[in-house]
Design a protein around this nucleic acid. Structure first.
Lengths: 223, 223
DNA sequence: GGAGTCAGTGAACAACTGTAACCACAGGCG
DNA sequence: CGCCTGTGGTTACAGTTGTTCACTGACTCC
């Protein structure tokens, strides 16, 4: 009986990753502690200057323990990319499939971005910073994932009736423009966050107008 | 007679900064050596991880000599921002005042950007990297300068006949969009530089289309 | 021509870095 | 139950870092 239940527990059952052995559970816990601590430290520096010891110190663990979880800081960074962009992923779905009036759609998109930035500022800061940052594998990971996002947006756009007569390449161009614009907007909210609420309002206004202009361009693309 | 010529030399005569004392000239020379060396080192790391000793070693000078020129690495960074964005400045002038057909104008703008990136890749990489980077004073310096660029573009746009009926705020919004798009384009050329020439062509196509779409949106803004 | 300024040197500092070897001990498995 | 695996701890090492201080010697100025 106990051997049977143990057997079931240590399987990484699809969809239910929770019931792991106590051992594995503890490991993932400290692993997550590394990721969280790193994210905090990265709020005021970039990954290429983040020290291994700095992270372990923040977690409250021996320096060498780091190697049990990541081969290097760069790999920790790649993992953070996954985490951060996974949290951003649902956002692109709901913005791409928004309904209603043009102005409403744009305003709603900006609102969603603002909400996300205020919910996960550290994640957003990390992505914005390392997007062009000094650690090549991390840069590549971000670029790859953003390319996937653009691909997704393209598919979503293709289903809209406004996209009739659009070539596949042009749709991807527009999708990329949206994705990039989303990140730029998020970054602007980031700086507005540590400024006045009036600045936040200004950013809302400006970025909404930007989206509007792009949307208008989209409507008259095939003239 | 010699005292008279010396007197003239050591004045920082307006417009002619060349005839300084031998002393000052040598100082500015090593100062420039610091900036150049730093720029090279920054091609594969970000400023927040750039060490003082690393720079002095590259210049071939004692570590302490650094302090004769900059109080800290961050100040070196701010100076690099000036240098890099000054080299980028003429570009925004010539793109904003471009003439001709819409497609021609956009293609020419992309061409100018591509040319600049290939002429000063290190400058562009530095700006793109530190734009959201980990050193606050540098970030601020870049943002301030980019805001000035946007202001300039706004003024240039206002003179165009297409800008009739545009509010000042909307013009600034458009100008900011152009400036940001310019940097994003430059960054994309940067990654294309260390890739295939076909990738470069793809970037040319996509970014030109992006500008075109924005330009179309501009035309139909007041409908 | 003599005094003074100052860019650059060299040695020394305490603090820090990544990483290696070895050890302890709790959880998992037969 | 007892053996083994493996997370995490400990100690140590060799380099590196930023910054200080007193110094030299060439250039500048009167």
């Amino acid at each position: 009986m106990p051997s049977l239940s143990n057997f079931g527990e240590r399987l990484l059952t699809a969809g239910m990753s929770h019931p792991l052995g106590v051992r594995q559970a503890q490991k993932q816990k400290t692993r997550q502690a590394f990721l969280d601590a790193a994210l905090v430290l990265l709020e005021e520096q970039s990954l290429s200057s983040l020290g291994l010891r700095e992270v372990t110190r923040a977690v409250g663990v021996a320096p060498t323990a780091f190697y049990r979880h990541f081969p290097s800081i760069a790999d920790l960074g790649v993992e953070l990319v996954k985490e951060a962009l996974d949290s951003l992923h649902p956002l692109i779905g709901s913005t791409a499939s928004a309904e209603g009036d043009r102005a409403e759609r744009c305003a709603r998109a900006v609102d969603l971005i603002a909400g996300h930035v205020e919910a996960y500022p550290a994640h957003v800061r990390f992505i914005a910073r390392e997007w062009h940052g000094g650690v090549q594998p991390v840069r590549e990971a971000i670029r790859r994932q953003l390319a996937r996002f653009a691909e997704e947006v393209k598919v979503a756009l293709a289903q809209h009736p406004e996209s009739e007569g659009w070539s596949d390449e042009d749709l991807l161009m527009l999708a990329g423009l949206y994705v990039d614009q989303m990140l730029m907007t998020a970054s602007q909210f980031l700086v507005a966050l540590e400024s006045s609420p009036e600045e936040r309002d200004r950013v809302v206004r400006v970025t909404t107008q930007r989206l509007l202009l792009i949307d208008i361009g989209r409507d008259h693309w095939n003239d």
